[in-house]
Simulated assay, not measured.
Amino acid sequence: MARPQKNGLDYFPLDVDIDQDDKVALIEAQHGITGFAIVIKLLMKIYKNSYFYEWTEKEQLLFSKRVNVDINQVNVVINDCVKWGLFEDNLLKTHKILTSKGIQRRYLEAAGRRQKVEMSKEYLLLDKDIVNVYKNLVIVNINDSSDVVNVDINPQSKVKESKVKKSKEEKIENIDSLSLEICKYYSELMPGQDISSQLPALKIWIEMYGYEWTKEAIQKCVSSKSKFAKPWIDKVLQNWTTEGKEEHYGGTGQNNAESKGKYTGFKPQQPKITEEFDTTDLI
């Protein structure tokens, strides 16, 4: 008998400065160390399950008992977590689950080596450009359990579908090639060190920010920290997008799409301030 497919994670990274994130700090300011502990306990539950945690009456009662906190206080903390953007409001209301974009992205990165990772179309919060980076991802419909190749497929001629498919394949191959170039570049900067395990993150950065910005952010990280610090690189790229590259580092690079890399399909994504990699990648 085949072993059942595993959905949850055995561990998840927890940044040492998670309490410095504004959203987490707001919860701790309102509810003290109890609020902070509830957030961490919920993350443990979510990642143990997969990328979401059901939040029905049964789960609420059991969670309250296990953390030894009154159920009403737990739900007050949950409501404030939704208010400050730690969890996605609509999915909690419609499907009674706790999740977020950051949780889903970190889950896909952690499960990147699995042959197949399933995510429900109804629960998916990530943009298609990010989803397409993960070749092992299968989007399913929870209503009929049928695989969904594209979440918004429209009837098209076979010729047009073939062209679209070919274009997507070329785009993915291009990103794969550029990601490997970044790995080689890092090995030149730091002889003897390999970051091939970080390919999922590299693909996302190249997709969102372009090859040249990704390469330069990594170079700055190595110069400052002498190691590959993924949260730091992600913050740099987000700051360059929201604040401008010149303004943030006093550089001479141009702040336009053409300066952001070889990948001509790049379109700058404007990340929300609440989507900082340190914590929202976890929550």
Results as ranks from 00 to 15, higher is better:
Gly244Cys: 08
Pro271Gln: 03
Thr56Gln: 08
Ile33Glu: 14
Val164Lys: 13
Val151Asn: 07
Ala111Gly: 00
Ile153Pro: 05
Lys166Arg: 10
Leu282Asn: 04
Ser64Glu: 05
Ala110Met: 14
Asn132Ser: 12
Asp70Met: 04
Ile103Ala: 00
Lys83Ile: 07
Asn174Gly: 08
Pro271Met: 05
Ile153Phe: 11
Lys235Leu: 14
Gln198Arg: 06
Lys227Cys: 14
Lys272Met: 08
Asn132Met: 01
Pro271Gly: 04
Val148Asn: 07
Leu180Ala: 03
Lys83His: 15
Asp278Gln: 11
Trp240Gln: 02
Val149Lys: 12
Cys221Asp: 04
Leu91Thr: 04
Asp144Cys: 06
Glu161Lys: 10
Thr34Glu: 11
Asn239Tyr: 15
Val149Arg: 10
Tyr185Gln: 05
Gln270Phe: 14
Glu275Phe: 09
Val149Ala: 11
Glu54Leu: 03
Asn136Arg: 05
Cys183Glu: 15
Lys166Gly: 03
Phe52Trp: 06
Pro271Val: 05
Val131Thr: 06
Lys160Pro: 04
Ile273Pro: 02
Thr242His: 01
Glu54Trp: 05
Phe52Tyr: 15
Ile71Pro: 02
Leu282Thr: 08
Asn239Phe: 13
Lys101Pro: 00
Lys267His: 07
Trp55Arg: 02
Gln30Leu: 09
Asn150Lys: 14
Asn132His: 06
Ser187Arg: 08
Val138Trp: 13
Ser224Asp: 13
Ile46Gly: 04
Lys48Asn: 12
Val151Met: 06
Gly250Phe: 07
Leu180Pro: 01
Ala217Lys: 00
Ser145Phe: 11
Ser120Met: 10
Ile139Lys: 08
Ser157Phe: 11
Met1Lys: 11
Val16Glu: 09
Lys260Ile: 07
Tyr263Lys: 02
Lys203Glu: 04
Ser162Met: 14
Gly244Glu: 00
Ser157Pro: 06
Asp194Lys: 02
Ile27Ser: 06
Leu14Ile: 14
Lys48Val: 07
Ser224His: 11
Lys203Asn: 06
Ile233Ser: 01
Asp234Tyr: 08
Tyr186Phe: 15
Lys220Tyr: 04
Val39Gly: 03
